[in-house]
Design a protein around this nucleic acid. Structure first.
Length: 626
DNA sequence: TTAGGGTTAG
């Protein structure tokens, strides 16, 4: 008589009467509770002793998205003589688990369990190598490679691809390339692994060359090259490749979109980011936790924090990464209190903060001047949350105290910190000395920094500007000479603005733009109009020993001013102008942008190296605290 | 059976 099944979902036929039926039921199963019932019925009917049904049951338990590895292992242990398929199934399940090392242990057990004949087959090694890849264990991969050669399985394309992947992922590109050249019948996976491995190690040009040579490309090839460009800082190329991908008719999925969304985030390309957002909605692309997180990050970094919040609130599953991205987003917009409120909300949901979350939180406190809150978080992070402060967290604290004018406290923290302070820590203190015009401390810190970071031009400039501000021109000139003698150059300031999908980059005094004449003429008009409003250029930041009018000329050709001037002549009245700058905005540019926002009635959003400035009606969201 | 995706101080 057929067994009766009672399922919570009632989606099942109510009986198992044959081997075929058990297989069909397993295929339709979608929850562990259902699987357990099938298991029970299989025991009752004796089907559990049949190889194929028990193999399928084991696979459902071990590999399906609703399964349970613990349950699978119990089942596996009860099987008297597991065959190769069953061994492979449990090895495979462990390779993607939290304990991939167990896959290797199982392989050893497998070898011992069958001494007479080899129990592995070509399916075994890809899983094992995946486990090595997850553990970043090149040594184990090499040992497995030896087994593969010994057993003559190295010509199997799956095995060869897996080996290639593990070598490429671990940065062992010479071995990966050797394997690649030896594989006679390369398939698309061979090519993709190679592109992804050359991309991950930062050799984007080589990845691009391979990509162009590929006989046929699929969505993973495109994703790999787009992601490689984004990770290698070639954001515009990532955007162009994305357009190429669309034009050849490849429909992007979530993973492909993440790469290009990140490129938009880095570029501050809001319109392109919005276009992708709309694409996701119109094409019903599933917004999984990773895609959602990258959208939140993109909207925050493109200056639209409200949209970031909307997306964040809509996300069903909020990972710690998503919470952190949102907290950091609020932080860089100076919305410190909201960042802290969001953290409190996160705690209620039981999500545990990590090191990056605390970096975001301390940044939030720093940019909003929330000194007590920052101090308290810093004290609690180790005691309450078991997250040890890293050099980044000390950096945030030095910045927080320093910006707030508590220079001595900041210096004391550096003296007491258990980790060796790096250049960034001293850099934060030097910046605070500059803001609060503490020249004595500034000189001291500047000298430490130049010793610690002798190739960083910004350090010399910082210290020289402190000397200059004090009127010590000789010392400032000496530093400039030192820089020149040592062959150190300063990272040039660069601002960009995106207009109709095209990125326009400007350096200070740049005359390479096709509209350069119009841009400089526009600046002259702006200058005249602002002076009528009482604008007096702030040249204090300049270290150059120049006459006042020369200083003004230098300051008026700063990259952000050129980008804003282009924005004013190229966009309609009332359009928000968005600029991204690689360095900190100078005092004069900050003042000018505030005035432009009032006089020209334009919202201007500037993202500088550390944060956002929203200029509107003559004010800036940073409240001049930056 | 093998290949692609997210958050980080100054």
């Amino acid at each position: 008589m057929a067994a009766i099944l009672f399922t919570p979902t009632n989606q099942f036929p109510l009986k198992i009467s044959s081997k075929i039926e058990s297989l069909s039921l397993l295929e339709r199963c979608s929850a562990m509770e259902e699987l357990k019932q099938i298991h029970a019925q299989m025991i009752k009917t004796g089907l559990i002793l049949k190889t194929i049904p028990v193999s399928r049951l084991l696979a459902s338990c071990a590999i399906s998205n609703y399964g349970s590895l613990t349950y699978a292992i119990r089942l596996f242990k009860a099987i008297p003589r597991p065959n190769t398929f069953m061994w492979n199934t449990v090895i495979r399940a462990h390779s993607t688990s939290n304990n991939p090392e167990d896959a290797i242990l199982l392989y050893c057990q497998m070898l011992h369990s069958s001494k007479s004949a080899p129990s592995y087959n070509t399916y075994t090694f890809p899983f094992l190598l995946k486990a090595c890849s997850a553990r970043s264990s090149l040594e184990e991969a090499k040992q497995i490679h030896a087994h593969i050669i010994k057993n003559g399985l190295d010509s199997d394309v799956y095995t060869a691809n897996s080996l290639l992947h593990v070598y490429a992922k671990s940065g062992n590109l010479a071995s990966a390339r050797m394997l690649f050249d030896r594989i006679l019948h390369r398939d698309i996976v061979t090519w993709n692994s190679m592109i992804d491995g050359y991309g991950k190690t930062g050799i984007v040009e080589a990845a691009r060359e391979l990509f162009d040579q590929m006989p046929a490309k699929n969505i993973i090839s495109w994703t790999s090259i787009i992601t490689a460009c984004t990770e290698g800082g070639m954001f515009q190329e990532a955007l162009t490749l994305f357009q190429d991908m669309l034009s050849v008719g490849i429909k992007p999925d979530g993973a492909a979109l993440v790469g290009v969304i990140s490129a938009c985030a880095q570029l501050g390309a809001l319109d392109e980011g919005k276009w992708i957002s709309t694409y996701i909605e119109r094409n019903d692309v599933q917004v999984d936790p990773i895609l959602g997180c990258s959208l939140v990050d993109m909207y925050s970094k493109c200056g639209d924090v409200e949209e970031a919040l909307k997306i964040f609130k809509k996300m069903n599953r909020k990972s710690i990464t998503a919470w952190t991205a949102m907290i950091t987003g609020l932080a860089i917009h100076g919305r410190g209190q909201e960042a802290l409120d969001l953290f409190a909300e996160m705690e209620k949901t039981g999500v545990k903060p990590n090191q990056v979350t605390f970096t975001g939180l301390l940044t939030a406190c720093s940019h909003a001047g929330l000194v007590d809150e920052g101090k308290s978080l810093f004290q609690q992070m180790e005691k309450k949350y078991e997250v040890s402060p890293s050099v980044e967290h000390y950096g945030c604290m030095v910045d927080l105290l320093g910006r707030a004018g508590m220079l001595r406290d900041a210096e004391e923290l550096i003296e007491k910190m258990p980790i060796r302070p790096n250049a960034a820590i001293w850099g934060a203190l030097l910046n605070a000395c500059r803001i609060h015009k503490n020249f004595d401390m500034g000189r001291r810190v500047g000298k430490i920094l130049i010793e610690l970071d002798p190739d960083h031009g910004g350090r010399y400039i910082h210290l020289a500007s402190i000397f200059a501000a004090e009127g010590h021109w000789n010392e400032a000139v000496k530093l400039r000479k030192m820089m020149k003698d040592r062959g150190v150059s300063k990272l040039p300031g660069c601002s960009s603005t995106v207009l109709k999908g095209v990125v326009h980059n400007f350096f200070a005094g740049d005359d390479s733009h096709p509209l350069t004449k119009e841009i400089y003429l526009e600046w002259d008009r702006i200058n005249e109009r602002l002076r009528e409003e009482g604008y007096v250029p702030l040249t204090d930041d300049l270290l150059l020993d120049l006459e006042e009018d020369e200083k003004e000329k230098a300051i008026h050709h700063h990259s952000e001013k050129l980008a804003i001037a282009l924005g004013l002549i190229s966009t309609d009245t009332g359009t928000t102008i968005r600029v991204v700058k690689n360095l900190r905005v100078c005092e004069d540019c900050h003042l000018v942008t505030k005035l432009i926002s009032r006089v020209y009635r334009r919202e201007i959003i500037v993202r500088d190296r550390t944060r956002f400035h929203h200029f509107k009606d003559g004010n800036c969201s940073c409240r001049d605290y930056w």
